[in-house]
Amino acid sequence: MGVEPGDRTVRLRPPADGSERELVLGLNADHVELLSPMDEDRLAMLESTGRVEVVDVDGEVAGFVVTMPAGTGYDSRLYRWFGERYDDFLYLDRVVIAPGFRRTGVAGAVYDLIEARAGRHGLFALEVNSEPPNEASLAFHRRRGFAQVGEVVDGPKRIAMLTRDAAWPEAVVRMWDEDRASRALGMRLDAVAPGRAVVTMPVREDMVNGHEIGHGGLTFAVADSAFACACNSHGPVTVAAGASIRFRSPVRLGEMLEASATERSREAGRGVYDVVVRADDRVVAVFEGYASELRREER
């Protein structure tokens, strides 16, 4: 799922190659006084435990983020503080925005993307230095609805522990729980926000056609499932009124497809949605869906 501050698209994705991994390490080193040290081994550990992703702004790396779900063996003292108090949460371990992209709306777009994922867990957790105070960060998080739920003392430093509720829309959760077709195809709902959704699907052996490439109907299916979640995210029961797809690149056995749906317009119970389907960072299909809310007597 991409978010558009101005006329730019912001995405989170894994580092594409060694040079991007080096860029992540360099950005971390530049801000190590606010973070914690990270070398290649530590980066690999974080990748195996949670998610390490670069901030992609129209194909240019603008920073990186590390997130961690509850219940892992991550050795961070602050992560464990949340784990001792909450059953489930998504923890933002660190976020760095490169200097040239600050104060441009990129940081807000990154938080939108992470919060859309945090709905799986119901809670978004992180910390900010309160002594010495990081006033800009504290103000930013207050504006986004975070509240202080505790404090950790680390020598002369005090660290504010912050959370905010991040539940997915009930209508989408209910619909997805009853979606036997998507589950049978191995799909996973990864992110939901008003008018947006991300669904992933692994390309299995039984999804490959006679040309040894992914069956186009199943690429359509994962795009359609993301479309369904996005158009139902506002609450009313909404169904497809039409859809089309254009294939851009063959899909291969073993790839993970990611379908990212974005609302283009919505008015008077009808909406238009764009879905981009990627395998790694390659666009394999683009989908356009038309949605219509059902009247109560039609349900």
Rank of each mutant, 00 (worst) to 15 (best):
P37S: 15
Y74K: 11
A279S: 15
R102Q: 12
G145V: 01
G26E: 10
T67A: 10
A193C: 01
G235E: 10
L25M: 01
F101Q: 04
V149T: 03
V32D: 06
A147P: 00
G289R: 08
V276F: 07
R77G: 12
R196H: 12
R158K: 15
K157P: 08
L126E: 03
R296C: 10
P156R: 03
M201C: 02
V24A: 01
S137R: 01
D274T: 15
R164H: 05
T72Q: 02
V283N: 07
E298I: 07
L294D: 09
R164Y: 04
L23V: 00
P250G: 14
V199H: 05
G105V: 06
E263W: 05
Y273V: 13
E84K: 13
V276W: 10
E135K: 10
G155Q: 06
V153A: 14
V52Y: 09
A241N: 04
V276H: 08
N209L: 10
A160S: 15
R282I: 10
D87Y: 13
H31P: 01
A118T: 05
E258R: 15
R102S: 07
L35C: 06
V277N: 04
S36P: 03
E151M: 08
A16H: 08
R42E: 15
L113V: 02
E115I: 01
A243Q: 14
V251F: 07
S48K: 02
R246L: 14
R21W: 03
F140G: 01
D206L: 06
P15I: 03
S233C: 12
G186P: 02
A268V: 11
A160M: 12
V96P: 08
L189G: 01
P133E: 07
V222I: 14
V10T: 08
E293M: 03
R266H: 03
R282Y: 05
I159Q: 11
L123K: 00
E60P: 06
W168P: 09
Y273C: 10
W176K: 12
A279N: 04
E4N: 15
K157R: 14
I97W: 06
G71C: 02
V284W: 06
V251E: 04
T49R: 08
S244Y: 11
G155T: 02
